[in-house]
């Protein structure tokens, strides 16, 4: 068995298996070598995207790799179909961070974001509102399209320009 340090370079195999099984029929089987190959591929994926994200970070003389850097790197490296749903995910994550659960859906429905509470322990949170304001980027109109079963939802990814992010 690999040492502790090497184990830290991979995702836990149990998580890998659970995720793989979610997408497969019940009778499908996965060999141990396939599980471990996927495990290695995930670490490689993180390193690959992170390296590209960090290059942009350094060009702009910032110290912290942000979620926007990650999404930008994915688009640049051909993972457009990942970056688009993840933009929505990030937006919704920020909503959930800023508002109590009982208010979240109402605020989302009305497109209210200016009133989001800014948690003091996440310095970068405030900038997210500029990047992913739903009223300006049509998230909710696209939601409507998705509900009607029409073509796929494509969230426009507009990386912020010239905005310095504070280090966490």
């Amino acid at each position: 068995m690999a040492g502790v340090r090497e184990q830290d370079q991979y995702m836990p195999i149990a998580n890998v298996i659970r995720i793989m099984r979610r997408i497969l029929p019940a009778h499908a089987k996965i060999s141990d070598d396939a599980k471990e190959t996927i495990q290695e591929c995930v670490s490689e994926y993180i390193s690959f995207i992170t390296a590209e994200a960090n290059e942009r970070c350094q060009r702009e003389q910032r110290k912290t790799v942000t979620a926007e850097d990650v999404l930008w790197a994915m688009e640049k490296l051909g993972f457009d179909n990942y970056a688009h749903p993840l933009s929505l995910y990030l937006h919704r994550y920020r909503e959930s961070e800023g508002e109590p659960a009982s208010v979240r859906r109402a605020s989302s429905a009305m497109g209210i974001n200016n009133n989001m509470v800014h948690p003091p322990y996440i310095n970068s949170h405030g900038f997210g509102m500029f990047d992913f304001d739903p009223s300006s980027q049509g998230f909710y109109r696209d939601d409507h399209n998705a509900a009607s079963g029409s073509g796929g939802f494509v969230a426009p990814f507009d990386p912020y320009a010239n905005i310095k992010r504070d280090a966490l």
Binding site: M11, V16, I19, M20, R22, I23, I38, C41, V42, Y45, I46, I49, A53, T64, V65, T66, A67, D69, V70, L71, M74, F79, Y82, P85, L86, Y89, L90, Y93, R94, I122, S124, G128, R165, L168
Partner: peptide, 17 residues
Amino acid sequence: SAEASVVFAKACEMFMM
């Protein structure tokens, strides 16, 4: 940033699938 890790958690899930 913490958000970068959160985005990657979802991205890796999609990647593995």
